[in-house]
Write a protein that binds this DNA or RNA. Structure first.
Ligand SMILES: NC(=O)c1ccc[n+]([C@@H]2O[C@H](COP(=O)([O-])OP(=O)(O)OC[C@H]3O[C@@H](n4cnc5c(N)ncnc54)[C@H](O)[C@@H]3O)[C@@H](O)[C@H]2O)c1
Ligand SMILES: NC(=O)c1ccc[n+]([C@@H]2O[C@H](COP(=O)([O-])OP(=O)(O)OC[C@H]3O[C@@H](n4cnc5c(N)ncnc54)[C@H](O)[C@@H]3O)[C@@H](O)[C@H]2O)c1
Lengths: 234, 234
DNA sequence: TCCGTTTTGTTCTCCCGTTCACAAACTCCT
DNA sequence: AGGAGTTTGTGAACGGGAGAACAAAACGGA
C-alpha cells in the first residue's frame, strides 16, 4: 500500500522531502482551515471545500498537499483529522516549541498575552527586557527578567526560536546575542535589516510596510478614478 | 531632459506605470533604508550601498528603481533625499493617510501606541471597539468609541484604510461593515480568511503562521543533524 | 578635449510558482 | 459485477521574478 512512488526525475536520494517555500508558507493556513472544519464537526472534506476555507485555488491546494504524500482518497476527499495531523507533523507543531520574547514594551506585552501561540504549537518560556524598571512586572503570568538571563534560559529550556520586539536600534544587538546563545530562528518585529549567519532563519514582520503597500494600491485606485485618460500632455 | 524614454514595447498607453507586485513590496524597505542613510548625513549613495542597507541584491534594487524612472546618475549614484521623495511619492505617503483601528484589545492598544505609523505616512483618526466597557478608555490620547460610529468617522475623515484587530470570529463582520462604509483597504490581524469584493485590498498579518514557518525549518535543521544519511531502509 | 573609471539602466536567461487539464482511483448504485 | 459519477494526484504549459552581465552615460583628471 503505497506503490513505487514513481518519482519524476529528482535527485532520487531524498525520498519525498524538500517542500517548496511557497508551499511551506501555506501549510499553516491549511492547518488553521482544517481546525475550523473539525470544530464544525466536519469529518471529511474535498480539496475544493478546503481551498475555499483557506482562500486559495483548489489545484494549488492539491499540489501543495501532494508534496507531503498521498493523504486523500480519490472520489472522496480528505479525512480532516488525519490530514490535520499530517500537516502538523510536517510543520513540526505536534509538540510545543519553547520561545523567548525580548523587548516587553507595547508590542511585546501584546504578544505575551496572546493565547493563540500556545494553541498553535508554541510556549513562551521567558520575557526579557533590558530596562531594569520592567523587572518587577509580571506579564501574562510570566516574570519579566533581565536580558542578561538569555543564555541561561536558552540553555535550560533548549530554546531555538526568539522573538525581537525591541526598538530598531537594539535589534541587531539582541539578534547577535541570541545567535551567540544558540538560537537559530528569529521573528523580528523591529523595522531593521538583521545580519545573521547563514544557518539562522530570520522572518520579519513590518506593519508599516504592510500599510504602505495598501497605500500604494489605494493611491492608484483614486488616481484611476480621477484621471480620465492618463498621459495627455506631450 | 528626459529623452524619448525608449519604451521597449509595452502597451504604450500607460506611461511608465504598472509596477510589479514584488517591487511594490520592496519600495517601503528602500524608503526606510534611505531615511536611515539621510539621518546619518549621507547625501549620495550607490545602488550597492543602498542594496546592503536594504538587505537585497543590488541588481534587483536597480531593476526595481528603474520601474519608477531614471532617478540616478551613472558614475555617481542616487541623491538620497531626491530618491527618497520619489519613492514616497510613488507609494503615496507624501501626505498622511487616515486610518481606523477596530478592536482595541492587547494588539489594538499596541498598534494605537505605535509611533512609527505617524512618521511613515499614516494617522490614526479613531479607535473603535464593540465592548461598551472600553468606551471610557483613552488609548494613546485617542478616545475609544463605539463600533457603530464607524460610518460617521469614515465619512468625516475620508478614511480609506482600516485595521482589524478583533478576535477571528468578529473579523468578517467588521470587514463587511468597513466595506459598506467605503473602506477599500484592510489590514487584518485576525487569523481568518476574509471575503471582500474585488476592488477591496486585504493584507493579512499572522504571527502564528510566521512562527510555524520558522518551526518547519527548525525541525528540518535538527532532523538533518540527527539523520546521518536519510532514506536508508529499502 | 579626450580617455579611463565608475555606476546606472536594461537585456537575457534561468528558475520557481501557478494554473490547466486529465488520467487514475475510489465509491455508490443498479 | 459493472458502469456512472466524483475527486485526487500530477504532467505540462505559462507567467513572473531573480540574478548575471553588459552597453550607455556621466564624471574626473590630464
Ligand atoms: N507597537 C506596535 O504596534 C508596533 C508596530 C510595528 C512595529 N513595532 C516595532 O516593534 C518594536 C517594539 O515596539 P514597542 O511599541 O513595543 O516599543 P516599546 O518602546 O514600547 O518597547 C520596547 C521595549 O524594548 C526594551 N528594550 C530596549 N532595548 C533593549 C535591549 N537592548 N534588550 C532588551 N530589551 C530592550 C525596552 O525597555 C522596551 O520595554 C519596535 O521596533 C517597533 O518599531 C511596534
Ligand atoms: N495579541 C497578539 O499579540 C496577537 C498576536 C497574533 C494575532 N492576534 C490576533 O489579533 C486579534 C486581536 O488580539 P488581541 O490579543 O488584541 O485580542 P483581545 O481579545 O485582547 O482584543 C480584542 C478586542 O476586540 C473587541 N471586539 C470584539 N468583537 C468586536 C467587534 N465585533 N467589533 C469591534 N470590536 C470587537 C473586543 O472588545 C476586544 O477589545 C485576534 O484575532 C488575535 O488572534 C493577536
Amino acid at each position: 500500500m503505497e506503490k513505487t512512488r514513481a518519482v519524476t526525475a529528482r535527485t532520487s536520494s531524498e525520498s519525498t522531502r524538500d517542500i517548496p517555500e511557497a508551499t511551506v508558507a501555506r501549510l499553516p493556513v491549511y492547518l488553521r482551515a482544517l481546525t475550523t472544519l473539525a470544530d464544525q464537526g466536519t469529518g471529511t472534506c474535498s480539496s475544493e471545500e478546503l481551498a475555499v476555507a483557506a482562500g486559495v485555488n483548489s489545484a494549488k491546494l492539491r499540489k501543495d498537499l501532494s508534496y507531503l504524500g498521498s493523504y486523500g482518497t480519490r472520489g472522496v476527499g480528505y479525512d480532516v483529522d488525519y490530514l490535520r495531523y499530517q500537516i502538523a507533523r510536517e510543520i513540526g507543531v505536534t509538540q510545543d516549541w519553547p520561545v523567548v520574547i525580548v523587548g516587553i514594551g507595547n508590542l511585546g506585552q501584546a504578544l505575551a498575552n496572546y493565547s493563540g501561540f500556545r494553541s498553535r504549537g508554541f510556549r513562551v518560556v521567558a520575557l526579557l527586557d533590558a530596562d531594569p524598571a520592567r523587572h518587577d512586572e509580571v506579564v501574562a503570568g510570566i516574570d519579566v527578567r533581565p536580558f542578561d538571563d538569555l543564555e541561561q534560559i536558552v540553555r535550560d529550556h533548549d530554546v531555538a526560536i526568539g522573538v525581537i520586539a525591541t526598538p530598531a536600534v537594539a535589534a541587531q544587538d539582541v539578534a547577535d546575542r541570541m545567535v551567540a546563545c544558540g538560537i537559530t530562528s528569529i521573528l523580528n518585529f523591529a523595522p531593521s535589516v538583521l545580519a545573521v549567519p547563514e544557518q539562522v532563519d530570520v522572518r520579519k514582520v513590518d506593519l508599516s510596510i504592510e500599510l504602505q503597500i495598501l497605500a500604494y494600491h489605494e493611491q492608484r485606485k483614486t488616481q484611476h478614478a480621477a484621471d480620465p485618460v492618463e498621459g495627455a500632455s506631450a
